[in-house]
């Protein structure tokens, strides 16, 4: 926590903008809070990674709002956006599931394909969601005013 306190000419920094997406700001206080909580789940995460993820969230939320997706919270809008605009378009066929199973046969030594088919399908869908999400975020970054200010390493 101490690492975030900055003093300039005797004035103690309370809070500031650390990143923004168009007109929506991410503050130091928000980043700090998210970073500390993320550390508990993913210990090797960096401040920059959390800031980038927060930026990505804002990008996706803004795109959801642009597409008239409504929700009581940002989380709801993002989830709906991912479901409606990305996940809904993904179809995984049997051949792909089988190929994945065969490729990772070593991990499924004593397991029949049919018993894990649904889980592999879910995994492949999530993999594809992720790929498309990555591409979408990159595309959104190109047409949005995004900036992450220089962050002090914790």
């Amino acid at each position: 926590m101490v690492l975030f306190i900055v003093e300039v000419n005797g004035d103690e920094l309370i809070n500031k903008v650390v990143a923004f997406v168009d007109n929506e700001a991410i503050t130091l206080a928000d980043l700090k809070e998210k970073y500390e909580k993320t550390l508990k789940v993913v210990p090797d995460t960096t401040l920059r990674q959390v800031a980038e993820t927060m930026v990505n969230r804002l990008l996706l939320k803004q795109e959801g709002v642009r597409l008239k997706i409504v929700g009581d919270s940002d989380d709801e809008i993002i989830n709906k956006y991912i479901d409606m605009s990305i996940r809904a378009d993904i179809v995984v066929n049997y051949e792909e599931v089988e190929a994945f199973f065969n490729k990772n046969r070593a991990n499924f030594a004593d397991i029949e394909l049919d018993s894990v088919r649904e889980d592999i399908e879910k995994l492949l869908i999530e993999e594809e969601v992720n790929k498309r999400l990555q591409a979408k975020v990159e595309e959104l970054k190109k047409r949005t005013y995004v900036e992450i200010h220089k962050l002090d390493a914790p």
């Binding site: 809070e33 998210k34 789940v41 993913v42 999530e126 999400l133």
Partner: peptide, 17 residues
Amino acid sequence: QICYLLVYILLIISLTA
């Protein structure tokens, strides 16, 4: 490599502010 972005996004969502 695979789930970095999505998992991170969903993880951040679940953290209460």
